[in-house]
Write a protein that binds this DNA or RNA. Sequence first.
DNA 1: TAAATTAGCTAAATCGATTTAGTAATAAAT
DNA 2: ATTTATTACTAAATCGATTTAGCTAATTTA
Lengths: 342, 342
Amino acid sequence: MKKTSINDIARHLGVSKTLVSFVLNGRAKEFRIGDDIAARVLEVAREMNYQPNRIAQGLRTGKTKTIGLIIADIANPFFGKLGREIEQEAALHDYHVIFCSSDENPEKSRAQIAMLQQSQVDGYIISPPINSEEQIRLLAKGRIPFVLIDRYFPEIESDYIVVDNYDAAYKATSHLLAQGRRRIANITMNLNLVNMNERTEGYKQALLGHSIAVDENLIKVLPFSHDNKDVTKAIQELLGSTDGRKADAILFSTSKIGVMGIECISALGLKIPDDVAVVSFDNADAYKICVSPVTVVGQPLQEIGKTAVQIIMDKIEHPRNPARFQHIKLNTELIVRKSCGS
Amino acid sequence: MKKTSINDIARHLGVSKTLVSFVLNGRAKEFRIGDDIAARVLEVAREMNYQPNRIAQGLRTGKTKTIGLIIADIANPFFGKLGREIEQEAALHDYHVIFCSSDENPEKSRAQIAMLQQSQVDGYIISPPINSEEQIRLLAKGRIPFVLIDRYFPEIESDYIVVDNYDAAYKATSHLLAQGRRRIANITMNLNLVNMNERTEGYKQALLGHSIAVDENLIKVLPFSHDNKDVTKAIQELLGSTDGRKADAILFSTSKIGVMGIECISALGLKIPDDVAVVSFDNADAYKICVSPVTVVGQPLQEIGKTAVQIIMDKIEHPRNPARFQHIKLNTELIVRKSCGS
DNA sequence: TAAATTAGCTAAATCGATTTAGTAATAAAT
DNA sequence: ATTTATTACTAAATCGATTTAGCTAATTTA
């Protein structure tokens, strides 16, 4: 049972495949195809269950109706939710998306971009790992539409959609200060990532704004591919000593770190918020049912995803020369729960 | 800066594109291409940064090196993790994957399958919604490789990979019984899904096996697209009355329901495990940092994902006629934490 | 009535690869 | 010296669409 092609329909009706193509593309009027034969084509196409071959269309038109998405890890709910929004918005434009998890590894992302290029995707949405500047620059040269999300490279001209990380961390830290916390720690990861860096900057400025000196010992930067051990060590150093703990509050810069961190805090037998207050980036499900539900910085995932797709679509449909780049910075929302005291 | 094609290389070297194709496919020896010219081709290909056009290859060879994945929701960590495993294993075979979230909606899944067919994917991995039997049957007729995961249709001949849901629920329920619980409830969703049905069957048989009658009032079947309200209602009915609660334990059949459920339990001011013991399917992150960490039924996601891809690859590479179908049933692991008492 | 226009359709090129069938030149065998 | 093999390569068909250029017959205009 081979698939029906445009040729099969043409042969079946004794007309040219040109005619069939015109009709199926809804351009019958434009090319003065007779009403009766046009109707017959549609009818036969349905009868024979004709499905256009997108690969063939793609070869001829240069459009695959596919966008490539590179994120750190689709198993991470933050990216999962983002991916879902992107998939949904893309579907509205009759596009589908190839998901690639880079693990924040520039070598992986390089290989993934290459593969997506070979597959002739029409556009890319990328959350670029550090040290992937060169790949991105190359992409830009290739004139293939792309948007960066979550982070960006200040030195590269491109479209990007991010949240106001500085402001978000500033708000979160201020909230902790307002609850009377003074020795506020920050656990984050590789500060070469702009977004992480901005978060820590916002945290520092909030402290300074309230006339509190920044104590570098309270800032724990985890190695890139962190795991439970790294988090445990950081928490130990901040809260471990029995006589007077170093910190009375922690700002987690990602939910992956935060979830592990809270696990450690519980393991140490400490209570949130009594022994230590907690705020985290990203509104993970886990935070809702936590020992004491965690106050978080919520990101507008739907808007990020939707806008990213829309920018890509716009670039695909209206290739501008020279390009004008959109730099979109969205606001976050501090969702107050119980982890900072009442 | 247009992309380099095989023709460009051929022209540049004054040879035929046939020769170039042979060399680039590593079939130089096979077709007796001279060593020197073969070396030159490779050299020039690198210099000109040649990237094969997979779309063109796909059209000619009929292989797109793409597999389509249809799951309920990529934002759901269960499917996110599964998707990640599938992506990873596929990459090993130089395949990539198009993700589609069906929301358990058969109409969506139908449209997604159609789109994937048009895109000529080489194979499908599908977690089929209820009432999608007809689509699956059609796929089977089309001779395109596919595997079902998480659930299957007993009446359709196909490959599938599932876990032993009956056994998993039996073990989980037995564990609750062993902790002295007697009024054990089950909150699940649409029982037309085989996997959900098997879970509830395992639950019932465990009760009967311990000479406890099944009380249908303790089994709450949530509507298909359930949300917080549905869960709240179920929990209310089970635990709401102040005088003597109906249930002293709950088995949640999915983590999505379970996480919401625990939120409700907390909202009612009840304590786990003192007021009610809890076991849930799926080892969600949230369960690790819960008020009292939740005992769960862990599924072998890596094995499911890996095996699914391997079966698809095998079918793509060795199209068998007549087909022989693999029915794989994997074991689960009961991960005991604190939510059932000590 | 001849020229110009329009309606309705088709042939063939094209996208970028793969693959079959073949050719020309040289070397080996008879 | 002729036939046969072998070596090194190429022309052209093909996959399934889109699209340009053009053709014929009927109709309108001059």
